[in-house]
Computed example of a mutant assay.
Amino acid sequence: MCEANAYVIKNGEEEIYLESVDILKPEGNQIYLRNIFGEQKVFKGKIKEMSLLNHKIILEEDR
């Protein structure tokens, strides 16, 4: 399996945003995410870091 979990940094801690993400599309200042279960979310911010080896996506909110 190649999906990853997406996290948002809140108060210096990683908080799960969406599990088992298989589609991630940057669209301007937003990021469209969809997981293997069909759940979809749009995040307002940017990708801070991705670790494909650890299946982890870190998102950062716009300020």
Rank of each mutant, 00 (worst) to 15 (best):
E60N: 04
E49R: 07
N29G: 02
F43T: 06
P26H: 06
I31D: 05
A6I: 11
K48P: 02
H55I: 02
Y7W: 08
S51H: 10
H55D: 11
N5L: 10
E3Y: 08
L33A: 09
K56Y: 08
N35G: 08
D62E: 14
E27T: 12
G45I: 13
R63H: 13
I57M: 02
I58D: 08
N54S: 12
E39D: 15
L33S: 11
I31M: 10
I16G: 09
N5I: 13
G38D: 13
V21D: 03
L24G: 05
I16F: 10
F43I: 05
I36K: 00
Y32E: 01
Q40S: 14
L53A: 06
D62N: 13
R34A: 07
E19K: 14
F37T: 01
R34P: 00
E14G: 03
I16V: 15
E19W: 02
K10Q: 15
I36W: 00
K56P: 01
K46P: 00
E49I: 01
M1V: 06
L53C: 08
N5F: 09
L52A: 04
G28N: 05
K10D: 14
S51Q: 07
N54F: 13
M50F: 01
L52I: 08
L59F: 11
P26F: 09
E27I: 15
L18Y: 03
N11H: 14
F37H: 11
E3F: 07
G45F: 14
L33P: 03
N11D: 14
D22P: 00
K25F: 10
K41C: 04
E61R: 13
E3R: 02
D22M: 10
P26N: 13
L33H: 06
N54E: 13
V21M: 07
K48C: 04
M50L: 05
P26G: 08
Y32C: 01
R63P: 13
E15A: 11
I58R: 10
D62I: 06
Y17V: 02
N5G: 12
E14Q: 14
K48E: 13
N35T: 07
S51K: 07
K41P: 01
N29P: 00
D62Q: 12
I23F: 13
Q40C: 09
R34L: 00
E61T: 09
R63W: 11
E14N: 08
E19A: 10
A4D: 02
I9E: 11
Q30K: 11
E14A: 10
G28Q: 03
Y32F: 12
K41W: 03
N11I: 02
F43Y: 10
E61W: 07
G28Y: 08
C2Q: 01
C2P: 00
R63L: 15
Y17L: 12
I58Y: 09
D22T: 03
R63N: 14
G28R: 06
G38F: 10
F37N: 09
G38V: 01
L53Y: 04
K44L: 11
P26V: 15
